[in-house]
Design a protein around this nucleic acid. Structure first.
Lengths: 331, 331
DNA sequence: CCTCATCATGTAAACGTTTACATGAATTTC
DNA sequence: GAAATTCATGTAAACGTTTACATGATGAGG
């Protein structure tokens, strides 16, 4: 382990003051003949500025925090990639919060942001209540919300038109003459689940279906196994001609389950997923899915945050992503 | 935005010195009656310690850096989850480096670690040369290597017995009477590709196959599309009775490609993947795959790093993960 | 040639903690 | 009951930067 080299060491070696070195490092001074000396000293000593000292002095960490529910879900993996890409060329480092499923976890995470180790945060939470809202308002760093359920007028915001997306899928089923649609939803507490459910009910009603709430099943989690479990519990599965799944993982589970029961997809039952993750093209049959453009949302969130960090007085930006139905074999 | 609250504010409010407050915050003092006062002041003011100041003073950032090649690859997603889990209960925050594919990117990332924004690093690199080795040796923070190609005696190290894993797959094919095996490898520059190739050659030779190097195809990337491209270029595909893929994504592409050509998997051609990612159970047919336990490796890497941070003088730990062949339908 | 502006550089304070050391009160010990 | 010990608290320095201000050199303008 080499001993640590600070501005002092460089200054001494170059025969100047630390202030001058600092200015050269930050490009605040035009090149006197000194600059050359200093640069050489920096190279020879292998000087690297100390982030903590800088952070303390200028009150900026050059880090941003990405707070997500769950890295098991490919949709958040995609979002993470987008965010990563969005920050790639910036000076900011990316912190990954641990998975935040419950309100308590979100709160804890947000509170810890008060320690100013991050200059901004991108928050995508499954839950969103007054308590979280309250903590958000005490944060002294910019926040970009992605997929916040309710309209939050105070924060840059990237939402998805869940209702519309679900509606597109339902419409597509109907246009193919499939009217007996089962909606396989995720855990009902989460915001996406609520929104998607609303979308489903509304859309079904618009097609003159009575009591659409009878055609909803809830999986215990957003994963294939939970889908299989949920579907196993349904008595008269063959009354349905289509299944809309709240997520591609559920759809993957559904397809597995159906083919295990010798039910043909899409001939007997068509299946549509949501999120259009990488998975969709790899399943058999390939999965028709509603694309909510997670990666793009991540990238856009990064862009919004960068812009706000650049200029905190910008007007609040809100974007609603238009979903797109990507048609493949399963429906 | 609330004004910032420091130790001074708390101290003033509680009528004590900042040193006392600091000690209470860090639990260095048994509860006098003062503690109560201080805790109340902290609560009322909503004090949170400033990470940068602390980091500067104690020369520790409470952050660790995870440096990975590519978040598109499910194997690194799994590893990330493992690392996340491993650090969940610790005080450390997790930084995610941008994707590091080339040597230059790795070097740049490692250099930037000299700014001590991280107390340790978990590095999993596709490439590993002297230059990287040199920079590693100048780092003043502990490093855990996961999947470093060559033995690096100086660093905690979690490797996988690639050769053995590939051998298991080959053996399994042979035991099923499939001797005409194609190895669909990834980009040849990367370390995993080299190791897996070696394993394939060696294993094939042990089964008395001459010139096994003739049975290797290289995909341009570790993804399904590249697999399809590579397989399209092979003239007499039906001479083979089995395909071993260097990665589950390649296997997914292979299965798609084969079923597109009406070649039955596994009846006509059996397929085995590597990594046993979440994907494996969702494909049709489900994918037999060599499990290299990526998530576990991530978790173990976190554990090793934590232990070393705790006690820097520990002897170097090396672990070689035993692969396991998870048999499903595709072979 | 004097004045004034310009500019690179140096001086020193500040950012918010932690911690070695000093102090004095409370408690123990003989 | 005096001496010794323990322990909570306070004082102040230090961590490595950035930056407002002062200083002195240089060049321009009259």
């Amino acid at each position: 382990m080499a001993e640590k080299v600070t501005l002092f060491a460089v200054a001494e070696r170059a025969g100047v003051s630390i202030a001058t070195v600092s200015r050269v490092v930050n490009g605040l001074t035009t090149n006197g003949p000194t600059e050359e000396k200093i640069r050489r000293a920096i190279d020879e000593l292998g000087y690297e500025p100390n982030s903590a000292a800088r952070a303390l002095r200028v009150n900026a960490s050059d880090q941003i925090c990405l707070a997500l529910p769950d890295l098991n879900n490919p949709v958040y993996q995609a979002m993470t990639r987008g965010v990563q890409r969005g920050f790639k060329l910036s000076k900011y480092r990316l912190m990954l919060s641990p998975s935040l499923s419950t309100t308590e976890e979100v709160i804890l995470q947000l509170k810890s942001l008060g320690r100013n180790y991050a200059d901004g945060v991108i928050l995508s939470s499954l839950v969103f209540d007054e308590e979280i809202e309250k903590i958000l308002s005490t944060l002294r760093i910019p926040v970009v919300l992605v997929g916040g359920a309710i309209d939050r007028p105070k924060y840059d915001n990237i939402r998805v038109d869940s209702e519309r997306g679900v509606g597109m899928a339902v419409d597509y089923f109907f246009s193919a003459g499939r009217k007996k649609i089962l909606f396989l939803n995720g855990p009902w507490i989460t915001n996406p689940a609520k929104r998607r459910k609303e979308g489903f009910l509304e859309s079904m009603r618009s097609h003159q279906i009575k009591n659409p709430e009878n055609y909803i099943a809830n999986a215990k989690a957003f994963n294939p196994k939970a889908a299989v479990e949920a579907l196993s519990g349904i008595k008269k599965l063959n009354q349905f001609s289509a299944i809309l799944c709240a997520n591609d993982l559920l759809a993957a589970g559904a397809i597995k389950f159906l083919s295990g029961r010798k039910i043909k997809v899409p001939d007997d039952i068509a299946v549509i997923g949501i999120d259009n993750t990488d998975l969709a093209g790899l399943l058999t049959p390939t999965l028709t899915s509603v694309d909510f453009k997670a990666e793009y949302r991540g990238e856009l969130a990064a862009k919004y945050l960068l812009e706000r960090l650049e200029n905190p007085n910008l007007p609040i930006k809100k974007t609603i992503i238009e979903p797109e139905l990507i048609i493949r074999e399963s429906a």
